[in-house]
Structures are given as structure tokens and as C-alpha cells.
Design a protein around this nucleic acid. Structure first.
Length: 804
DNA sequence: ACCGCCGGGTGCC
DNA sequence: ACCGCCGGGTGCC
């Protein structure tokens, strides 16, 4: 409950501009149809046309201004009519009749998205030029070109706006990942909370409060607005308006988890109630911790079937809490608009709406998001610790909720931000950065305010504990290593490492598993490399490879989206991608589709998925023939020593191999440790239970949590633990850091000690070396590597790992 | 619109 | 004159 909440301060009313709203809604409506084809689309070309009937309408346009084209099938004079509107939705004119026939055809059949730019501005009061560009899917290109030429219009090829500066995919990804970083502005002052707040605010929280108050009250426009004479000029869309654009009253508070976003927001809300207003005993969870007991605040929890839907009652509350589910349920029942049964929360005119855990509503297509966008409020806030998950499109929802005009209309967001950025246009990215910066405050735990760290955390130290293998283990390990080296050095000599990447990974994984415990190997695979004979055999082999790539938590990246693989499939050339990513490659390249990693031919019918059965059998086997390993022994002696020294210290035991966690349960039980386990297979509900149990300081609560490296995503709080045992090195040092951050965070009272177990004279030692190099690279903060360099360095990595 | 188009007025040079 | 030419009226879809 706590996580899905918004606050509304009731009782204020304000007038919206109904004309602009309806028109932009009309335009938004048409935009969403095409938006199912997200940011895809290539430029087919452009042509010059004319807009007529200017003198009948009030909409004005400048030189270079973007305009939108809206079909008017109901127009009584011409069913092919195409209306031209400026950025603010004011009608400018119509597309000339003969051209409108063409556009109507293309638009109605969804063959292309048509966009207009006015090249000269208004040269006369009757007609004007417009450059129309046609964007669509490659397979529609022919049809569009045919349509255009058959009506004897000339399609100019090539881009209209020349994008001279472009980014590579990697640069883009880096820039995007850093979008919310370095937004700190030392100029922000601090502001004390009003007396009603009893928890003292930390300096950075006072700073956030000051910033939030400024955002709600400051009249300054974002700097992409320039005042030109009587008009306000938008430098991104080249549009201008006579009336001062309404400033966003609110923003995105995107501080890291644990920096006190909720407390700051409560302080903000209370700052509106300090004129001697009576406030009542609060009911909510976190609220009563921070609000003085004698302060009376009317807070209503709007959920449950008996909730009071009376809008007068709701309006009389100082604060109403609800969940996204309740909000969207009310909204979809009432259809949002219907007068008689309108959604109560959509009827009240709020002073302020706060979206807590705002990333929950990042997908604009969900009912929840639609319901949220339709709330009627003066001030708007989004609280989130993770403003971007993966996609630029996630951001639109935030912009739309804030009504950051004109980008709350999809077309302008797509044209000015989304498409330019995804196509690597540098100015597009700069615009995006500017846009984000003007509404966002984000600090991380490592941010500094005026040279001082934001929050002071206890020390954290890392020690590497070398583990010696027993003679038997060493023999087994060397056998596997020699075998692996032979195979990999052959690939290196042939230059086919990437072609056999899954094989190579499989070998490495085996070695890493040996270092932990021989029982991890499960169904062993003899090294492949020989072409399989039957399709069934091939399939079996591919599934095995897929299992190896994924089952280890090695965090493979999909080479298409450069993100962690989701919905994994493996190609016949044994490369793993997200299914949607590779399906898109195949769809767009059709028969010529090639594997992005090795350029081998790929087909949709040959993608192999992971079968969900057959997991359990090996588990029981593991437990029956129990034996220990050097690494298990090393951990156990550390834990036993720790318990005898101080039995109040709690530990995280982390591995990438969930099976290793299962193995570790046996000696932990034997030694009488109380422990819990958190891994990626558990339901959200179960995870929350486990975390609560571990965090509890009740007597008899667990001393140890077995944790899979990637479990739980970001943000879970394990501050009860001050010891971390990293059982096996990860490819990605950031993953280890994030894991440690779960206990080294606000609320941690002790120094945090991290122990990394590394088997001496093994692939693990080499992984640690590579981790260091990677860290150096990150610290240099250069994202200059393009995808092909990336692959080369990966080959180098493998050679370094195998000492070739 | 300092255009094009329409349709009425007009008619040797 | 069932044409050409002139000049006024007119003008999105």
C-alpha cells in the first residue's frame, strides 16, 4: 500500500483553457493511433505543398515552426480535408484540395505519418508553403511513393532537417543513463520545514523543500522559452504564443531511495497549512512519524469498498491517500467523463497531486496512467527513485502528467525529443537534457552539497579473501580448464570467438562453478563446436547453452537494446537476445536478416526459447550426495567466527548462482544459523515478507540472508546487515555495488565490511582484474566506444580470462 | 491575391 | 461573337 500512493490537497479551483485543451486532445487522439508503432519509422522523403485559407483562422506560425496535420473526414466541403494546426493546437488553415486527396489517402490507410514544417513563416495572409515529410515503416515505402508520384507530386528524398551531429548507440545509451545525473544545482537554498513537521529535516531535505516550494510558486519559464517583443517564443518548436505559457507547478523529485522524498513532500504539503489551521490526528503509516501529534490534519484513506465517494467530503479533506488501482478502477467504471457517475477523484479540483513511486505509471497505455493524466489539479509532483527504467518513452508519461507544454502532446514529444534522440541527434539529446533539468531534482547518496556529502554513511571496506582449492578440487578444475583452453584458443585462432560466444560462455561458467562448488555443474555438457546432427539434438544443445548463459546471472546484454536480456531466445548461431528485439530485426530485414553479433543468417522460426519444465529433478540430487567445497568452508568459518565474536551482526551471503544458495543452506542449517533467502524466483509478496523478517530486530530473527545477486532490483532496504559475503565475482562490478548498496544506505548504523571470496589461481582472479579495468573505464566517463569496439574488447576479455 | 479563376461586357485599327 | 480580349469580382476545406 505504502508504495502506491498519491496525496491531494483539496479545495482550490482554477480555470483551464477549454479551447486549447479540446483541440490538443483531438490532436493527441490522432497521434495515439500511430503511436502503437513506437519510435520506429524511416523518412521516405518530403514534398512542398501549400496551406490555404489562412485568413479564416487565428493560428499563427513562425519561420521553421512545426505544424501538425489533422484529418477532418467529417468536413462538409471535402471528406479529404486535412487541417493544419500550430503547436498550440490553433488552426492555421487547410492543406490545398488536390494535395489533401493524397494526404487523406496516406493518412487514412496508415501508410505514413505526415509531419509539416513551415519553411518561411507567413509571407501573405492567404496561403503559405509547408514542407511535408513522410515517415513510416520500410515496407510501406513503395506504396507511399506510388501514391505520391501517381498523383504527380514530386517526393524529394533525403532528410529535411540535416542531422549533422549524431551519437553512436553506446554514446546515446550512456548519455541517456546519465540523463538524471548531475542535475544538482548548488544555487538552491535551504528551507526549514514548518513547525508541524516534527522530524528535523536534513540539509539536503531542506534543499529539496526549498526547490519544491520554488517550483510551485516561481513564475520563471523554462529556458527554451524566449520573450520576443510581445510574444513568447519556444526555441525547440519555433512556435510562439501571445499569452505567457502556463508554467509547470511541480516537478519530479527523483532522489535516490532512502533520501527522504516522502518526508520532504509531507513538509511541502504542511507548508500550505500553517496559518493557524487545525489539523487532526493522522492515520497513515509514515505520516504520523513526521507530523507533530497536536497538529490536526484531515487525512482520508480512499480505498476499500466502503470508501466515501462524496466529492464534497473529499474536497473538505486536507489530504486524501489512495492507490493507483483504486484511482483507475473508479476512472474506468465511470468512463472518466460521465456526469452522473463520474469518478470522485476526477471530479474534485485538487490543489496538489503527488504520484508516489511515479515509475509505476511510466507506461502511458495502462488504465492507471490514463486515470492519472485526467486528474484535475493545480500542482503536480512525481516522486521516484528510478526515473528511467529503460526507455525514453517512459519519460513521456512524466512530462505529460506535469503538462510540460507542448510536450504533453505526443506529436511534439515524438518530433522534438523522442525521434531525434533515438536517431542519435545530438541537439535532440541536449533538448531532452534541458527539458529534464528544468523539472527535476535528483541527488544520489554520493552527491555533494556545497562540497559536503549529502548524507554521511558509515565506512565501507572491501576485503578479498583468497580461497585455496583442495588437491582433488584443483585436479578437477585443471581438467576442465585445459579442455576449455583448447576449445577457446581454437576459436581465437579462427577468429570465431563471437560466433561461438555461447560456447565460450559455457566454458567460463563451468570454471566459475567449479570454483564455488562442483555440485553447481548440474547436467554437464561436453564442449560442443561440432555441428549437431539432428534438429532435436541441435535444439537440445541450444537450450543447454541458453541455460548456461542465463542461469548464472552473468547479466548478458542483448546486443540490440543493450539492456539486460528480457524474454530470452537463442539463435541457431547461439546468440542470446530479447525476443522482441531480435524479432524486430528479422521483421525489418526479412529474408536478409542476420545475427547482429556474428552476421550469421537468422530466421524467426529458428529462435529457441527456454522450456519451463525439468528444473526440479537436479535439486534433490544435489542434497542427497552432499559434499562441501573450499569456498563453502571459507564462508562457514567466517560466519562461525563472526557469530562467536558478536551475534548481533547480520550478514548477506550473495551469489549469482541460485543453486549455490541452495547448497549453502545445508551447512547453515547444520550449524544452527537462522537464515532467510531472497532470489529472483520469489513473488513480490514473498520478497516483502522475507525482507521484513530480516530487517526486524525482534529476538530470534534471522542473522543471515541468502541473496541472489540480481534479486529484488533496485531499492530494497537490507540495512539490518552490515556484513556482505560476495561468494563469486560478477562480470559487472556495478551489479556488486548495487547489491552492497542495499545495506550500505541511510539507516545503516555500523561500518559495512564486504568480503569477496576469490579462488586463487582461477578464472575468478582474472575476472577481478577485468572488473578493475572496467571500473577505470567507467571512472574516465567516456562513452566513446561503438558497438564493434565493444565486441572486440569482449574477445580480449575472454582471452584474458583464459590467459591466452 | 503584385496571383489564377470565373463570368459578364464587349468587339477593326 | 459557338471566338479572344479586357477588367472587375472574387478567393479554404
Amino acid at each position: 500500500m505504502q508504495s502506491r500512493r498519491w496525496f491531494g490537497g483539496a479545495g482550490f479551483s482554477f480555470a483551464d483553457d477549454p479551447v486549447t485543451e479540446t483541440l490538443s486532445q483531438a490532436i493527441r487522439g490522432t497521434g495515439e493511433e500511430l503511436d502503437r508503432e513506437p519510435d520506429t519509422g524511416v523518412l521516405f522523403g518530403s514534398l512542398r505543398g501549400s496551406v490555404v485559407g489562412l485568413r479564416y483562422y487565428t493560428g499563427v506560425v513562425n519561420k521553421g515552426e512545426m505544424v501538425s496535420l489533422v484529418r477532418q473526414p467529417q468536413n462538409p466541403y471535402d471528406r479529404n480535408a486535412v487541417m493544419v494546426a500550430n503547436v498550440y493546437g490553433s488552426q492555421v488553415g487547410h492543406i490545398k484540395r488536390e494535395l489533401a486527396v493524397l494526404l487523406a489517402n496516406i493518412m487514412d490507410n496508415n501508410l505514413a505519418r505526415v509531419e509539416g514544417v513551415v519553411p518561411f513563416g507567413v509571407t501573405n495572409q492567404f496561403t503559405m508553403s509547408v514542407v511535408l515529410s513522410f515517415w513510416g515503416r520500410e515496407e510501406n515505402r513503395d506504396a507511399v511513393v506510388r501514391q505520391i508520384t501517381s498523383r504527380s507530386f514530386k517526393l524529394q528524398s533525403g532528410p529535411t532537417g540535416t542531422h549533422t551531429h549524431t551519437h553512436t548507440l553506446t554514446q546515446l545509451k550512456n548519455a541517456f543513463d546519465n540523463l538524471f545525473e548531475n542535475l544538482m544545482d548548488d544555487k538552491i537554498g535551504e528551507r526549514e520545514a514548518v513547525e508541524a513537521v516534527c522530524t528535523p529535516l536534513l540539509p539536503h531535505q531542506k534543499q529539496a523543500l526549498s526547490w519544491m516550494c520554488a517550483c510551485e510558486n516561481n513564475a520563471a519559464l523554462p529556458h527554451f522559452w524566449e520573450v520576443k517583443g510581445e510574444l513568447f517564443y519556444n526555441t525547440l518548436t519555433h512556435s510562439s504564443v501571445r499569452e505567457r505559457p502556463r508554467r509547470v507547478r511541480g516537478g519530479i523529485l527523483a532522489d535516490d531511495m532512502g533520501l527522504g522524498k516522502t518526508l520532504t513532500t509531507i513538509a511541502l504539503i504542511l507548508s500550505n497549512f500553517h496559518h493557524g489551521k487545525p489539523l487532526c490526528e493522522p492515520v497513515s503509516d509514515q505520516l504520523d512519524q513526521h507530523v507533530r501529534a497536536d497538529v490536526k490534519l484531515n487525512v482520508y484513506l480512499y480505498y476499500g469498498s466502503e470508501r466515501n465517494r462524496d466529492t464534497h467530503f473529499l474536497s473538505s479533506q486536507h489530504m486524501v491517500l489512495t492507490t493507483y488501482n483504486v484511482l483507475s478502477a473508479d476512472y474506468s467504471v465511470s468512463g472518466g467523463w460521465v456526469c452522473g457517475s463520474a469518478s470522485p477523484l476526477h471530479t474534485v479540483r485538487w490543489l496538489r497531486v503527488v504520484l508516489d513511486e511515479g515509475h509505476i505509471i511510466r507506461n502511458p497505455n495502462t488504465q492507471q496512467s490514463k486515470a492519472v493524466l485526467k486528474l484535475n489539479t493545480q500542482r503536480r509532483w512525481i516522486l521516484t527513485g528510478t526515473p528511467i527504467q529503460n526507455n525514453l518513452r517512459d519519460l513521456w508519461m512524466l512530462v505529460a502528467f506535469l503538462r510540460l507544454k507542448p510536450f504533453d502532446v505526443r506529436e511534439w514529444w515524438n518530433r522534438v525529443i523522442q525521434r531525434p534522440v533515438t536517431q542519435g541527434d545530438k541537439t535532440g539529446l541536449q533538448n531532452l537534457q534541458a527539458l529534464v533539468k528544468c523539472v527535476t531534482l535528483r541527488r544520489t547518496k554520493t552527491s555533494r552539497v556545497c562540497g559536503r556529502p549529502l548524507v554521511s554513511l558509515p565506512e565501507r571496506s572491501v576485503r578479498i579473501e583468497e580461497v585455496e582449492l583442495t588437491q582433488k578440487e584443483r585436479e578437477e578444475y585443471e581438467l576442465a580448464r585445459t579442455e576449455g583452453r583448447t576449445t577457446i584458443s581454437r576459436y581465437v585462432a579462427e577468429g570465431t570467438v563471437l560466433r561461438n560466444y555461447a560456447d565460450v560462455l559455457a566454458i567460463l561458467v563451468r570454471l566459475r562453478q567449479f570454483c564455488c562448488h562442483p555440485g553447481l555443474l548440474g547436467k554437464t555438457t561436453t564442449h560442443t563446436g561440432v555441428v549437431a546432427v539432428t534438429p532435436a539434438e541441435l535444439r537440445e544443445r541450444l537450450i543447454m547453452k541458453l541455460r548456461l548463459v542465463l542461469g548464472t546471472g552473468s547479466d548478458e546484454e542483448c546486443a540490440v537494446c543493450l539492456d539486460s536480456v528480457r524474454l530470452p531466445v537463442i539463435t541457431h548461431c547461439a546468440h542470446v537476445y530479447c525476443r522482441p528485439c531480435i524479432a524486430e530485426v528479422i521483421r525489418s530485414e526479412q529474408e536478409q536478416a542476420r545475427c547482429p553479433l556474428c552476421r550469421g543468417q537468422i530466421k524467426a522460426s529458428e529462435l529457441v526459447e527456454f522450456p519451463l519444465e525439468e528444473e526440479e529433478e537436479e535439486e534433490s540430487n544435489l542434497l542427497e550426495n552432499w559434499r562441501s567445497s573450499s569456498k563453502v568452508e571459507a564462508l562457514m568459518s567466517s560466519l562461525l567466527r563472526l557469530r562467536s565474536e558478536d551475534d548481533s551482526i547480520r550478514s548477506l551471503v550473495v551469489s549469482q548462482f541460485t543453486r549455490f544458495l541452495t547448497i549453502l543452506e545445508i551447512p547453515l542449517r547444520e550449524e544452527g544459523f537462522k537464515f532467510v533467502r531472497l532470489d529472483g524466483t520469489m513473488s513480490q509478496k514473498r520478497r516483502a515478507q522475507v525482507i521484513q523478517e530480516f530487517q526486524s530486530d525482534a529476538p530470534g530473527s534471522p542473522l543471515i540472508m541468502l541473496l541472489s545477486l540480481k534479486a529484488g532490483g533496485v531499492g530494497i532496504n537490507l540495512s539490518a546487515a552490515s556484513r556482505v559475503f560476495l561468494m563469486d565475482p560478477a562480470w559487472n562490478p556495478a551489479a556488486e555495488d548495487q547489491c552492497v548498496d542495499r545495506c550500505h544506505r541511510l539507516g545503516q548504523k555500523r561500518d559495512v565490511v564486504i568480503t569477496k571470496f576469490i579462488v586463487k589461481g582461477s578464472v575468478e582472479e582474472n575476472m577481478v582484474k577485468i572488473q578493475r579495468q572496467k571500473q577505470d573505464l567507467v571512472e574516465k566517463a567516456f562513452g566513446t566506444k561503438n558497438p564493434s569496439e565493444r565486441k572486440t574488447s569482449r574477445v580480449d576479455e575472454i582471452r584474458a580470462l583464459m590467459e591466452l
